[in-house]
């Protein structure tokens, strides 16, 4: 009986956590569309967040994109040539690499860097009672702390993922010339024919959803920290697991929508 009880308790706890997160997400989205949210203080925080998430890592991001992206494109092209599937390289490049791998790799990069930092920051602020101080001074936590980070997540992920895709396609020019002996005109024609506007739009929306949840979930977990310092690693690890679960769920859902 106790095993069943434990299973039931766990399921209820998970379901409750899931619904709480969704409700919180709705609350945040509602606040996002209110004009009064965008005060001077909030804009300053948002600016700083975008700077630390996207601009500061740009050089590293370029290097990783070019190296990883080029290698990926090169290997895929080589494989297609060996299998005699050169006719499909446009579809593979656009359908798989640009619309699937590019957002996924970007989200992993941002999650490992920014989500972990946000999670820890929130937990430490909670432990140090900084959250309480802000509340005493009637500074809305959602407006000042949460929304800038979430908006930053959305903007950064969409822009960085697009940048990654652009760099991939550019390195594709080089590899298509080396491996297939293809000129730029032929390459761009193939890409244009394979590119589907709806797929690209879905990919951008997916990036925005990724960005939303990889910032929302760490914030929620960080705010669950208690007054003890020992609660910090617990909420951080829980938050990161939650983030990776959300990434997988969103990825699966986007693949399902592609089927239809």
């Amino acid at each position: 009986m106790s095993v069943l009880e434990n299973i039931g308790r766990l399921e209820i706890k998970m379901f409750k956590a899931f619904t709480d997160t969704i409700m919180f997400a709705f609350k945040v989205i509602f606040r996002m569309f209110q004009r009064r949210t965008y005060s001077s203080a909030m804009r300053m925080v948002l600016l700083n967040q975008i700077y630390f998430t996207s601009v500061q890592i740009l050089p590293l991001f370029f290097i990783v994109s070019i190296i990883l992206g080029s290698l990926l494109v090169g290997i895929v092209f080589q494989l297609l040539k060996q299998l005699g599937l050169t006719d499909f390289f446009g579809n593979v490049l656009m359908g798989l690499i640009v619309t699937e791998l590019s957002p996924f790799l970007t989200v992993l990069l941002i999650t490992l860097r920014s989500s972990a930092a946000i999670n820890t920051e929130m937990a430490v602020m909670k432990v140090n009672r900084e959250i309480k101080t802000l509340e005493i001074f009637r500074i809305d936590i959602i407006d000042y702390l949460i929304l800038p980070r979430i908006i930053n997540g959305v903007i950064s992920l969409v822009l960085l993922s697009s940048l990654f895709s652009i760099l991939l396609l550019t390195s594709g020019i080089l590899f298509s010339r080396l491996i297939f002996g293809m000129s730029i005109d032929v390459y761009s024609n193939i890409i244009l024919n394979s590119a589907n506007l709806s797929d690209i739009v879905i990919s951008l929306i997916k990036c925005a959803i990724f960005g939303f949840f990889i910032t929302l979930i760490p914030i929620r977990f960080g705010l669950k920290a208690s007054q003890e310092l020992t609660s910090i690693p617990i909420v951080v690890s829980g938050g990161m697991v939650g983030v990776f679960t959300a990434i997988i769920i969103i990825e699966v859902l986007s693949l399902i929508t592609k089927l239809f």
């Binding site: 700083n48 996207s54 822009l159 652009i166 506007l197």
Partner: peptide, 29 residues
């Protein structure tokens, strides 16, 4: 910092929009 962030957002957004516009026009949108 503001300049860098602004530059990043503007340049990347323009690049993405140009790519989408080019694709749309080639597709006859």
């Amino acid at each position: 910092r503001e300049f860098k962030v602004g530059l990043f957002i503007v340049c990347t957004t323009i690049a993405v929009l140009l790519a989408l516009l080019y694709l749309s026009s080639e597709k006859g949108f």
